[in-house]
Design a protein around this nucleic acid. Structure first.
Lengths: 343, 343
DNA sequence: AACGTTTCTGTAAACGTTTTCATCAAGTAT
DNA sequence: ATACTTGATGAAAACGTTTACAGAAACGTT
């Protein structure tokens, strides 16, 4: 194995000078720099990461903490994050934790062992963050939950305005004349009676508010049915919801997988979509426009979300730029899964 | 920060003895071990990974190299790998590389900088491996490509028998009476005229062989159309294929996303699936049974594939067990997207 | 000519481990 | 008693870097 020592020997300079070249220090003569650089290239020398990290007491990794997972939405953000980090030559390590785990506690622990230079939180919940994030001093990005008013200057956040987007989706249904609209997906927390997860809360809140704005009071008991964010879970839930409230003419599904499961359930009940009932999804995963019927949904730009998050984090790591909070735009994608109510 | 030195001081033992305890060496007295262990716990001491790695000249990471990506199939395997590694307390770093890159070359480079203790290759191609894998001496697993006859004793492989599974899918179509069957997806390599990617080759080969077994000669010029493994890419390709060969009564799509895109394209041409044309997919991603029509497909157990791969790699890293090559079973999932031909 | 700057370079300590080797005590066989 | 083995322990070197500090050389200023 070839080390800094070898480079020093070959070049005739000392180890420190070589180190200075490696780290792009300014106090090296042009002559030395050029010579050493050429030798490094020609010997294909790679500084030993472990030694650097040991000395500097940080790793060069970035830790990504994914909470909940198993949703195409998060997966696709994660993939973008990984790709983009790779492009920057950064290494990331990913930690999946269960829906019920505390991501901040995990981060503290990871920070202790792995000493990453930053964190990206995917699919976190506002609950944990607000209180406990103060334990983390590294540059971090919270993707999916708005942390603008948390008051931490080392925490950026990138989100779509779920509340507004949900309102938009419901508004489209209202415009078509629907008045009996059900909501499907997410779940209520055991403890607080609040919605467990921030962006679920937001979507539901946005939808309910929009309904109220149009003089419709939403009856959670009757017209809401919780389920996990998958087609499998939505399938029975959709069935249950419609049997309880057969007069619903439209369903707002909290994500696309839920919409897919719901549509299947309705068809199995002998109900055509959209003629029998309208369905609108959320998230715009890539295949929705090829489904039958094409699913109406809110499209979020996951690539952009990921890109902004990564770029912001790296910038803040390198230059200590201040944390920012940004909303990524969404758009309503009109499909064929909605139509004016027939009942 | 609390170090091994501190533990030594507190316990009254020397650094070496503490190190021995940490590494579970046998030459430590029970008394010393217990005392030191209790102090480690109570001080919540975590050995510095960087120092260990520096000394031992390896990292504790495992590198996963994903080639091609962007397919739900690989994504779902990757996710399983990540989860399972996490459960074992292992750290992984993931490297995405382009379809056209050489994964072995990447691995060599990664090995030099990151010094992982093992590799997992996802979505690799047989071409590169057979020749160049000898450069890699670390325990490795090749997922998706069968390496049984490559002759490397540090390379395990886990695959589904794509060739057999494809034959099975096509056989189902044949049984229903189809004789004019098209194939959609994958692409031919520029250089060799061979199929670039091993498992694409296998699927196509399996399909073609099955046809020939029934006395049908497959005309690549007319009845095959290449495309990437996404609905977006399959949509125009399916259209093109059917316009060129309008007498096809069934399509074997090389994966489910391709099938989804194809079905959409056929419907847009005014052709009902399955009454106008049958479509069978491959891979069995989770939502296919909720699509309309439910997609007939080959279901592969990605969770099992990932689990076996991870377990095998860890076993081999720890105990130097010999490399193995295993086929994960598949099953045909009959949907509603096929029917006897009407023409 | 003496001094102060600036620019470049080298020496050596330090980072937190693992591991080789030596030491010492205690036990066992002569 | 003596020699040999065994088991437990510690001292110190080593892993490949970074960096504080000191020194040397080159130059400009008085």
């Amino acid at each position: 194995m070839i080390t800094i020592k070898d480079i020093a020997q070959i070049s005739g300079y000392s180890i420190s000078t070589v180190s200075r070249v490696i780290n792009n220090r300014s106090d090296v003569s042009e002559k030395a720099r050029e010579k050493i650089e050429s030798i490094i290239r020609e010997q294909n020398y790679q500084p030993n990461e472990n030694a650097r990290m040991l000395k500097q007491n940080i790793s060069s990794d970035i830790s990504v903490i994914v909470r909940g997972s198993k949703s195409i939405f998060l997966e696709s953000i994660l993939e973008e994050v990984q790709i983009r980090m790779g492009k920057h030559g950064e290494n990331i390590n990913v930690h999946f934790i269960a829906e019920t785990d505390d991501e901040v506690a995990t981060a503290v622990q990871v920070g202790q062992t792995l000493k990453p230079k930053g964190f990206i939180f995917l699919g976190g919940s506002a609950d944990h963050f607000r209180e406990e994030f103060s334990q983390i001093s590294l540059p971090s990005v919270l993707v999916t939950v708005d942390a603008a008013d948390f008051g931490y200057d080392n925490l950026s956040s990138f989100t779509t305005d779920d509340e507004e987007a949900a309102a938009c989706a419901v508004n489209m249904l209202l415009k078509q004349g629907h008045r009996r609209i059900g909501i499907l997906g997410g779940y209520l927390s055991d403890r607080s009676g609040e919605f467990e997860d921030n962006y679920r809360t937001l979507r539901i809140r946005g939808a309910v508010k929009e309904l109220e704005k149009h003089g419709i009071r939403f009856d959670f008991e009757k017209d809401y049915e919780p389920c996990a964010f998958s087609a499998e879970s939505a399938f029975p839930a959709a069935d249950k919801l419609l049997r309880r409230s057969p007069d619903l003419t439209a369903i707002f599904a909290l994500n696309d997988a839920v919409a897919v499961g719901a549509i299947r359930a309705f068809r199995d009940m002998g109900l055509d979509v959209p003629r029998g009932i309208s369905v609108v999804g959320f998230n715009g995963v890539s295949y929705v426009r090829y489904l039958n019927p094409r699913l109406a949904t809110i499209r979020q730009d996951t690539a952009k979300l990921a890109r902004k998050s990564v770029d912001d984090l790296l910038l803040r790591i390198s230059y200590g730029s201040p944390a920012i909070h940004e909303k990524i735009p969404y758009e309503y994608f009109g499909g064929e899964s909605t139509a004016p109510p027939s009942k």
